[in-house]
Simulated scan of single mutants.
Amino acid sequence: MLQRLKALFGKASAKPLPMHGTDNIPQHIAIIMDGNGRWAKSRGLPRMAGHHSGMKAVKRITMAADNLGVKFLTLYAFSTENWKRPKAEVEFLMKLPQEFLTLEIRDLMAKNVQIRLMGNREGLPDHTLRAVEEAVERTSGNNGLVLTFALNYGSRKEMIDAIKCISRDVKDGKLSPDEIDVSHMESHLLSAGLPDPDLLIRTSGELRLSNFMLWQLAYSEMWFTDVYWPEFSDEHFYEAVREYQRRARRYGGL
């Protein structure tokens, strides 16, 4: 069954494939960055070392996406479920955004990258939120690749919050139930203003969405690899795009 699922959704192949030109590059790529802890364990290192190496992969893949002409890159950095992890690990993870942005903001500015935050700000430590919001403000005038960090993000909560907001508008007489449509729902999601992902990549061999962009991924192509996130390279990223280029997207049609 596992092999069948990987064949169905796409999995990293052993041999590199030729790039199918520069046409049909996915406009929006979303990535579930998975496997930091297992990567560290396989090397006899603490989980924190895996998370730190995973941070380096963020820079590497952001630059690869920009070089390829991808317009939007959304990274699942921390889910609403990740708070259940050990306190020391959570505290370490909450320090990484500040470290990453301090080290890389100059290069991101040089590449004209615009940073966005998608998630619930409530509950984030002040130092984490401050670092991200400063980066968002500093890059707000850039018009290159839009790099969105899904931080303290959970898709089910996102949709429930959207439904609550719409329900209040109906209750207050501002909106008729008949006026509710897909675009209205999407305008209340945390991803409002972003196109739906064309391609979802998940590393580390897991074959699930883990409460990530459940609405937005309705017609996205999916690609899975056994490679852990810290060792996910430019070539792995390009391979995912090449696989995307070979597929025919029908959106439910023939």
Rank of each mutant, 00 (worst) to 15 (best):
Q3F: 04
Q3V: 04
R4W: 01
R4Y: 02
L5Q: 03
K6L: 06
L8C: 07
G10S: 05
P16K: 03
P16N: 00
M19E: 06
H20G: 09
D23Q: 11
N24S: 12
I29W: 04
I29Y: 02
A30C: 05
M33Q: 03
N36W: 07
N36Y: 09
R38V: 05
W39H: 14
S42M: 08
P46S: 11
M48G: 15
G54Y: 12
M55Q: 15
A57C: 12
I61K: 10
T62I: 01
A65H: 03
G69S: 06
K71S: 04
T74S: 15
F78C: 10
S79D: 04
T80L: 01
T80K: 12
K87V: 02
V90E: 00
V90F: 02
F92I: 03
F92N: 05
K95T: 13
P97M: 04
P97E: 02
L101W: 10
L101G: 10
T102Q: 12
T102G: 08
L103T: 15
L103Y: 09
M109T: 04
K111D: 02
N112G: 13
N112H: 13
N112F: 01
M118C: 14
E122L: 10
L124M: 15
T128V: 10
T128C: 11
A131H: 09
V132I: 15
E134Y: 03
T139P: 08
S140N: 12
S140R: 13
N142R: 01
N143T: 14
V146E: 00
V146C: 01
L147N: 06
T148L: 02
A150E: 00
A150F: 07
Y153G: 06
Y153A: 08
S155M: 00
S155C: 01
R156Q: 13
K157G: 08
K157F: 07
E158D: 14
E158K: 03
I160Q: 04
D161P: 01
D161E: 09
A162S: 13
I163K: 07
K164N: 06
I166W: 00
I166E: 00
S167N: 09
V170M: 11
K171Y: 06
K174A: 14
K174V: 06
S176D: 06
E179G: 14
E179K: 15
I180Y: 05
V182P: 01
V182M: 12
V182G: 07
S183C: 09
E186R: 14
E186T: 05
S187N: 13
L189M: 14
S191Q: 05
S191L: 04
P195W: 00
D196N: 14
P197F: 01
P197W: 05
P197I: 06
D198G: 15
D198S: 10
L199W: 02
L199S: 07
I201E: 03
G205F: 10
L209Q: 07
L209A: 13
S210N: 06
N211V: 03
M213P: 12
L214A: 10
E221R: 15
W223P: 09
T225F: 08
D226I: 08
D226E: 14
V227H: 07
P230L: 10
P230T: 06
D234K: 04
H236D: 13
H236L: 03
H236N: 12
Y238H: 10
E239I: 05
E239T: 12
V241Y: 03
R242H: 11
E243S: 11
Y244G: 11
R246A: 13
R246E: 01
G252M: 08
L254H: 10
